[in-house]
């Protein structure tokens, strides 16, 4: 049977539970590219245009890793989840870029709520393309959705639980494909944990609540994930000691959203922007002094 390759970046951190469960319920073999390593990063840098954001460069590296290890590479397109919840344009163009740069077969669906293209329709489409017996698809979708919801619930309750902790608590505000990526966010989180900091994640809250709360900082913002990111600051603001904005160079939504947020909140914060040749040594100094500030404030 045809094997599917899933790149571990960009879309992965939003839909992994649903897509992986869906595929395994249908007994479709799949592989996920490994965590970002040096080779993947370097391949990505070579393939991408200079000015693309680091995250997207890494994404292309993951596609390159998968290109001869499977029959299909999974590259969805996400346009919007309703007209006030748009995606960054890279989410809209990923499919066409990959399709033009690589000679591979792509498994693709389009999520565009404004045009009534929903996730369910998309998953059914790829199942049909892989010639799954249609009787099983509906059940697989149900199981996938339930797994996704349960997992999300668990993540949220852990995150909420951590907010009650007595340690210094820092909210990481960033896109999950950066925060959980080995080259970008992992070392920062590891460093914070080693220094006895409780790390809270901006994407692990009830997105319906955080989405609405973002209005307190910005009324006109229409990027869905940015809205939820800044909404989480409002949600957690009385329980956290500091905020770390984490983004990659040159992230389009973040360039404006971080600016307006920094001007609107009165919580200590730093803005870490990771680029192609970032070294952790430089980041460490900034993190260290940030922690010193937080500790002093806490002792006062």
């Amino acid at each position: 049977m045809d094997k599917v390759g899933i790149p571990r970046n960009i879309f992965y951190y939003y839909d992994k539970d649903i897509v992986e469960t869906f595929l395994s319920e249908l007994k479709i073999p799949y592989i996920v590219s490994p965590h970002t390593n040096k080779k993947i990063l370097e391949d990505g840098l070579k393939l991408a245009s200079d000015e693309m954001c680091l995250s997207f460069k890494i994404y292309l590296g993951h596609i390159n890793y998968l290109k001869d290890k499977c029959d299909y590479v999974f590259v969805p397109r996400m346009c919007n989840l309703g007209s006030d919840n748009q995606m960054c344009t890279n989410f809209m163009s990923a499919y066409d870029i990959v399709n033009n740069l690589f000679d591979i077969k792509i498994l693709n669906y389009d999520i565009d709520y404004d045009s009534k293209h929903f996730l369910k329709k998309g998953l059914f489409k790829i199942a049909n393309e892989l010639k799954c017996p249609s009787g099983k698809i509906r059940k697989a979708y149900k199981v996938a959705l339930k797994t996704y919801k349960d997992k999300k619930k668990r993540e949220i309750s852990i995150n909420e639980g951590n907010l009650k902790n007595n340690k210094i608590k820092i909210l990481i505000v960033g896109h999950p494909y950066n925060v959980y990526d080995d080259f970008i966010g992992s070392s920062i989180i590891k460093y914070l944990k080693q220094n006895d900091v409780e790390v809270i994640f901006s994407d692990r809250f009830d997105s319906e609540i955080t989405n609405k709360l973002s209005k307190k900082i910005s009324k006109e913002l229409y990027f869905k994930f940015s809205k939820e990111n800044i909404g989480s600051i409002i949600y957690a603001k009385d329980k956290i000691d500091g905020v770390i904005f984490l983004s990659t160079f040159p992230c389009a939504p973040d360039s404006l959203v971080t600016e307006i947020t920094e001007r609107s909140i009165d919580i200590p914060n730093i803005n870490l922007i990771i680029d192609d040749n970032a070294s952790f040594a430089g980041l460490e100094t900034r993190l260290e002094s940030f922690l010193d500030v937080l500790k002093e404030r806490k002792n006062d």
């Binding site: 006030d84 006109e220 360039s255 404006l256 307006i260």
Partner: peptide, 29 residues
């Protein structure tokens, strides 16, 4: 693209600079 979001951020920057004015964003998103 992000052009639709210029207005609000520019309004914030200009108000922080101390200007008093009304901002109208004719086309958002």
């Amino acid at each position: 693209c992000r052009y639709g979001y210029y207005a609000e951020v520019q309004e914030k920057i200009l108000k922080d600079l101390g200007y008093n004015f009304e901002m109208v964003n004719l086309i958002n998103n």
